[in-house]
Amino acid sequence: MIHVSDLDKSFGQLHVLNNISLDIAPGEVIVIIGPSGSGKSTLLRCLNYLEVPDSGSIAIDGEILTLHTQDITRIRSKIGMVFQRFNLFPHMTVLENVIEGPLTVKKTARAEAVKKGEALLEKVGLADKRAARPSQLSGGQQQRVAIARALAMEPAIMLFDEPTSALDPELVGEVLVVMKALAKEGMTMVVVTHEMGFAREVADRVLFIDEGQILEEGSPEEFFRAPKNERAQAFLSKIL
């Protein structure tokens, strides 16, 4: 479903992604972990071309990403993205945030978009907040709205860029619950996170990235029990 080959990316002197190749199957839940600055967020952001790699290629459903506007907007509409800082649209209500994508991108009829939007808010447990502004919500609620907003496009893939890192500890759980439910439904997910519990419980495969390279990958059982790579061992001993 996602095919990444020989991805390279530098920011000035900094070599953030170093020859990364990766295949992700439909329905797979991939958790990417690694120290900060390791390139994991950049890799994720390359998958929908928010970050354009210097070389290498990414194919989604067999279609190679380019910057051609029509192609990239169509592909992006199939890939939901959830950001660390939520990035909800502050000038819109919760419901307007959720239906904005279908209305503007898919030209869905308003009544239909509203109906689906309300169902999604129900799903993330925020039906009663439809008329609220993002600024009136807690971080956890905002992130759940952001997930609903991404799901409103009916994506085939969901990308999560440290979705709980900006949250107070007591709000992390409610977001993880939504993500777990999504994984259970068979959504293809790529998640950059520091939530090792989530990785252990939900991931089909864990990737450990450092200095722009995938240093280790495997099932969560293998990875957490006995990481082979030295840096992965050091990282885990610090974080667990």
Binding site: N48, L50, T69, T73, R74, R76, S77, K78, I79, G80, M81, F83, R85, N87, L88, F89, E100, G101, T104, V105, K106, A146, R149, A150, M153
Partner: peptide, 20 residues
């Protein structure tokens, strides 16, 4: 992040400017 969120929904640059 506002532009990124708009683009990630599949909006064009012009739509993101106008709507967001």
């Amino acid at each position: 992040g506002q532009m990124e969120a708009a683009l990630s929904l599949g909006m064009t640059y012009a739509q993101a400017m106008r709507r967001v």
